[in-house]
Design a protein around this nucleic acid. Structure first.
Lengths: 206, 206
DNA sequence: GTCTATAAGGGGATAGAC
DNA sequence: GTCTATCCCCTTATAGAC
């Protein structure tokens, strides 16, 4: 049985992993500035000093998590948008379905990434440029071909917004109409069929 | 000539107003936790002690700003959604146009409000409940009537997302396709005509 | 009302024992 | 590798002079 590259694969995870997982939870919940390293240590069930032993600093640990999360959030889009073997319709269906699935498991992902990006854009310059997924993408070309009369960039936030925005406005939507977590989830699952229908309608609309 | 309740109305604003305006800028840019009262004082061109003299504490000042911003962001929706004298189509056109206009002037408003709401939801419980604009709104009833086969709540984040989401993903969109501020603005102005067309298409789509 | 100086405490990071 | 104790800077808030 082949061993993976990771140092450990025990049932109870290593200290390093415990800290990382705690950091994921706390950073995502509170953002960089509101998070105290002490919160992470407590959440991980370890001592504060160990955090610095393994990760040197709060910022280094954050960068690690953030990099992961950016990849998670934009990886989906990147892979789909640059696949030359799928039609526009197929791409849209993939994006809708994959994002709803992703966000049902990681509901705070978009608001976390986008608000940290907003608060300290200079900190992420390299990271954002590397996320150069859209420019020259197959998706943009296909949109251009389908609707030469509309700037294809108009469609990007539209498509993503329809899929992602419910999760972003969840903290205001849910309490303001008295919706349970379960109801929200049900609604989002139902949404997976609605989104592609809507987007196709948008692409035809004049 | 009647004097208003406010203490001052001079051309150069009062110290209190200078602090408030500085606070708006800094809080919106960096969020509550990353903001230092020193930043606000410096931005306002006054001494740190004056901030506490006028507003008692950082948190009290923040609450003031936040309350304003929540009203700004949801006031639009509230007024439109509960107007019994306009058709569904008119409502949608209003929302699209008003939100794009609002966000062109206040681009960071949604990400600010939504990320602070996310980071400290318990802090805003009352504020959110008070924002009970949607439940039992005319807008929801009209959506229900138009499309009895779809949960009307599905349409809310869709409509708002199409109008608002471009501003939320702006920090990633703009650098990733190399778009200038001017180009972004142009695109958003152009968008004011697209959004109602798209939403009408969505409402018909099966 | 506005300033300087400072108190009081929080939070990131490390020294050093085990 | 993991802990306790501690350093030290930064930040909020206030005291008190003007």
């Amino acid at each position: 049985m082949k061993k993976v590259a990771k140092k450990k694969a025990e049932p109870d995870s290593s200290t390093e992993d415990k800290i990382k997982e705690a950091a994921r939870r706390v950073f995502i919940k509170k953002g960089y500035s509101a998070t105290r390293t002490r919160d992470i240590a407590e959440e991980a069930g370890i001592n504060l000093a160990l955090l610095n032993y393994y990760f040197r600093s709060k910022e280094k640990l954050f960068d690690l998590i953030m990099f992961e999360k950016v990849q998670k959030l934009f990886g989906v889009l990147g892979k789909v948008a640059n696949n030359p073997d799928t039609s526009l319709t197929e791409k849209i269906e993939s994006i809708a379905s994959l994002y709803v699935d992703l966000l049902l498991v990681n509901p705070d992902l978009p608001i976390f990434v986008l608000s940290e990006l907003r608060a300290r854009p200079e900190h992420f310059e390299k990271l954002v440029q590397k996320t150069n997924i859209l420019k020259n993408s197959v998706l943009l070309a296909q949109l251009q071909e389908k609707r030469p009369d509309v700037n294809p960039l108009q469609f990007i936030p539209t498509i993503l917004g329809i899929a992602v925005f419910p999760f972003i406005m969840r903290p205001i939507l849910q309490p303001s109409v008295g919706m349970s977590d379960k109801q929200f989830t049900t609604m989002m699952v139902e949404r997976k069929t609605l989104v592609p229908i809507w987007i196709k309608a948008i692409l035809k609309a004049k």
